[in-house]
Amino acid sequence: MKMVEINLHKEHLFLQTEDIDEESITCFILTGRVNIINSNCVIIKSPEQIVIIDPGGLQSQAEYIEEIIGHYNYNNSPVYVLLTHCHIDHSYNLFRLFQQKKIKFKTIMNQVCADIFAVVINRNVLLEDFLDFKIPSYIPDIILPDISEISGSGLNVEIDICCSNNQLIYKKTSVLKEIEISSYQLIVGDIVIECLSTPGHSPDSTCFRVENVLITGDILFAANMGIAGTIGWSLKDLKHSVWALFNYLLQEEFIDAIVSGHGPIINKTQALSIIEKKISYLKILKILN
């Protein structure tokens, strides 16, 4: 899979986007300065589909997304939007894109994320007040099933999910390697996305892997509450997710790039080093045994 990094603060959008093969999968990674009202964004373009992960919060990033989709969606392919988690800095442009109606897309959320957006009492988890953004209640087009309800235990199970006419077809296919992480595969046309459940920073936090790229949301920054506050933040879930992601990266050989929610693209060695520091920090706080 070809990767194209676009730094929103350094260069024109298409300076690095020549030689894009229409018949292969391309991963556009939008990065920039660390900003509490915006996140990195990943756009995966294949011959059949386009998937946007974490559209971010800044208006300028929404415009870049529209430009990329307008330029490269040659066949008017279906567009889907996924979120690593619900926080406004990752999700607000979902609503900008929806309101501006320049891109027709469908949203895919896990059940926890969908519940947060749908119920007014849950809205503080989005950090609306902190970032002074307000969004309406929202119901996604496709809600992913709860892994624990399908598998019984919720651990070490892969689920194949096929998106077709907003219907979900899932089945237990195999047992994951012996690591404590819940996993399923989301198959969107010709794009296969491995979804790793990593709650803690927020209750709905998920990492996504597409071929050699792992999109981690904010778990690499989540060794303490930070601006996530106390609403929806869980030390118990976080310690499990940090260990699970560490073990996952140790066992997976073919991950070349890790895209965190904020900051530069890093490699697996750098990610493991960051997670080791997080584990040490949690041990100092006597959170981990």
Rank of each mutant, 00 (worst) to 15 (best):
L126R: 03
S197R: 07
I275M: 07
E252T: 15
Q59N: 01
L168T: 08
I147G: 01
G56E: 04
G226K: 04
I169Y: 09
Y74F: 12
I103K: 03
K268S: 08
Y92C: 00
I20E: 13
Q251F: 09
D256M: 07
S234Q: 07
I116C: 07
V42D: 05
I181E: 00
D129K: 06
G232P: 07
N289F: 01
L94I: 13
L155H: 12
D190A: 15
P136W: 10
T107V: 14
D132C: 02
I43S: 04
A118E: 15
E63W: 01
E48V: 04
C27V: 14
K2D: 11
L97T: 06
L82C: 08
Y281F: 13
Y170A: 06
I135Y: 10
I44E: 04
Y74Q: 11
V42K: 08
A223Y: 07
S91A: 14
N93W: 02
I284R: 01
E63C: 01
L282C: 13
K286P: 00
K268R: 14
Y92N: 05
E149C: 02
K101E: 12
S280K: 14
V34A: 09
E149A: 03
Q270Y: 03
L127T: 08
K268T: 10
C27E: 13
N35P: 03
Q59L: 00
N35E: 11
S197F: 02
N122H: 13
Q16N: 11
I258F: 14
I227A: 01
N166T: 12
I36L: 05
D129P: 00
N40A: 05
Y184K: 04
E180V: 01
I20H: 10
W233C: 10
D218R: 04
D141C: 09
V259N: 01
Q251L: 13
I29F: 05
G229A: 13
M3N: 13
I37R: 05
G232M: 08
E276M: 04
T17F: 06
N122Q: 14
I215Y: 07
T107L: 13
E63N: 03
